[in-house]
Deep mutational scan, measured.
Amino acid sequence: PKDEAKKKVKEAIKRGDEETAKRIAKKYNLDWDDAKREADEER
């Protein structure tokens, strides 16, 4: 599900692992900028 994928993307971003985050986002066709902004807001 997309929500689960987005959570994984945000967790990867918070760990500083943007490569993984981008790969997950691409795989699930998520909006990378959107997920990154959300992760930054939660930090």
Rank of each mutant, 00 (worst) to 15 (best):
P1H: 13
K2H: 12
K2N: 13
K2V: 13
D3N: 10
D3K: 08
D3M: 10
D3C: 10
E4A: 13
E4N: 08
E4S: 10
A5T: 04
A5W: 14
K6L: 15
K6H: 07
K7G: 05
K7W: 11
K7R: 13
K7N: 11
K7P: 02
K8A: 15
K8C: 12
K8T: 07
K8I: 11
K8P: 02
K8M: 15
K8V: 09
V9T: 02
V9R: 00
V9A: 04
V9K: 00
V9M: 13
V9L: 14
K10N: 06
K10S: 06
K10E: 06
K10M: 14
K10H: 11
E11W: 04
E11M: 07
E11N: 07
E11I: 04
E11T: 04
A12V: 02
A12C: 08
A12G: 02
A12F: 12
I13Y: 09
I13L: 14
I13Q: 02
I13C: 02
I13A: 02
I13E: 00
I13F: 05
K14H: 12
K14E: 10
R15L: 09
R15V: 05
R15D: 05
G16W: 02
G16P: 00
G16Q: 02
D17S: 02
D17K: 02
E18I: 15
E18W: 15
E18H: 13
E19L: 09
E19F: 06
E19Y: 07
T20L: 15
A21D: 01
A21I: 00
A21V: 00
K22M: 11
K22L: 09
K22G: 01
R23P: 01
R23G: 07
I24L: 13
I24F: 03
I24R: 00
I24D: 02
I24M: 08
A25C: 10
K26P: 01
K26R: 09
K26L: 13
K26Y: 10
K27R: 10
K27V: 09
K27P: 00
K27C: 05
K27D: 12
Y28D: 03
Y28E: 03
L30E: 01
L30Y: 03
L30K: 01
D31V: 06
D31G: 03
D31L: 04
D31Q: 06
D31M: 04
W32I: 07
W32T: 01
D33R: 05
D33Y: 08
D33M: 11
D33N: 11
D34S: 10
D34C: 07
D34A: 14
A35H: 04
E38V: 04
A39N: 05
A39P: 04
A39C: 04
D40P: 04
D40F: 12
D40I: 10
D40V: 09
D40A: 11
E41H: 09
E41R: 10
E42P: 07
E42T: 08
E42N: 07
E42F: 05
E42V: 06
E42A: 08
E42R: 04
R43H: 12
R43K: 13
